[in-house]
């Protein structure tokens, strides 16, 4: 699909202008750019060998990140159950699910780190703003997933139970829920994984967790300690993924 005609010409012009504008207005001296290589090498050199004495901080930080992710996910689940029902076309009318879906799209558009900064401003430093931020941010996605899970349910067994004389709550329990349950479980685990990954950096803005130590050690030039924490973060991400693969298989 090549750029064609005037439209294509205009697009190419726009891209070129954007690149030139970025170069012209960014304060990057070429000398600094040239010396960046050796400086980064030096920086990496000072990270090595990682300082293993920060084990206690790593444990404390990761435990807090884990708590933020767990409680944040719990908050998101609690918010997403009613919002998911209100965003599903099988449960409510378009007058309800359209505005709710728009609201969820807005929530998804706000980056977590931004929500976290605002929450630190609102409730102060510590894990609490992190938990609130994760719960809020994750709801944008999780409520949408829950709505899709409800809408993806096969109607036939619901009609069959209705025909057998079962009321709406009984149908929800025996025809709708058994169909949704695995999807809900999978979606919630998936979102928990994202929450855990994303909350690793919340500490940088003062919203609790292991990110706080990376921030502290880099600011105080203790790069070897920062390296240890970074390694811990990478190990955690890999571990989360491994656990997740196993869990997902369980809920297939």
């Amino acid at each position: 699909m090549a750029f064609r005609g005037f439209g294509g010409f205009a697009t190419s012009g726009l891209i070129a202008t954007a690149i030139l504008w970025s170069f012209a207005t960014t304060d990057v001296e070429f000398s600094r750019l040239l010396s960046a290589g050796p400086r980064i090498a030096d920086f990496l050199g000072r990270m090595f060998p990682p300082d293993p004495t920060v084990m206690a901080e790593i444990k404390k930080g990761s435990a807090e990140t884990l708590r933020i992710a767990i409680l944040g996910t719990l908050g998101a689940v609690i918010l997403s159950v009613p919002l998911g029902i209100l965003a599903s076309e099988t449960m409510v009318s378009p007058a309800v699910f359209r505005p709710i879906r728009t609201l969820l799209a807005f929530i998804r558009a706000i980056p977590l780190i931004l929500v976290a900064m605002l929450m630190v401003g609102a409730v102060g430093l510590g894990p609490l703003p992190g938990i609130i931020a994760v719960a809020f941010h994750a709801t944008g996605m999780l409520a949408k997933f829950y709505a899709e899970a409800i809408d993806g349910v096969s109607r036939a067994p619901i009609a069959a139970l209705e025909s057998a004389g079962a009321g709406p709550l009984v149908r929800l329990r025996y025809a709708i829920w058994p169909q949704m349950a695995p999807v809900v479980a999978r979606d919630t685990i998936f979102r928990f994984e994202l929450n855990l990954r994303e909350s690793l950096i919340l500490g940088i803005v003062g919203a609790g967790g292991i990110g706080f130590y990376i921030q502290t050690y880099v600011r105080s030039f203790q790069y070897d300690k920062a390296a240890s924490v970074t390694i811990a973060v990478v190990v955690m991400v890999i571990a989360i993924e491994a656990i997740n693969v196993a869990l997902r298989r369980r809920f297939a």
């Binding site: 096969s154 036939a156 067994p157 009609a159 069959a160 139970l161 025909s163 057998a164 004389g165 079962a166 009984v170 025996y174 025809a175 058994p178 169909q179 349950a181 695995p182």
Partner: peptide
Amino acid sequence: GFVFQEFALVERSTVLRNVLNGRLG
């Protein structure tokens, strides 16, 4: 009682659970 062309069973539930569903009414 109604028997459907496409069975209309709850796929992830057991046979007994599906038959018990007929008792719900």
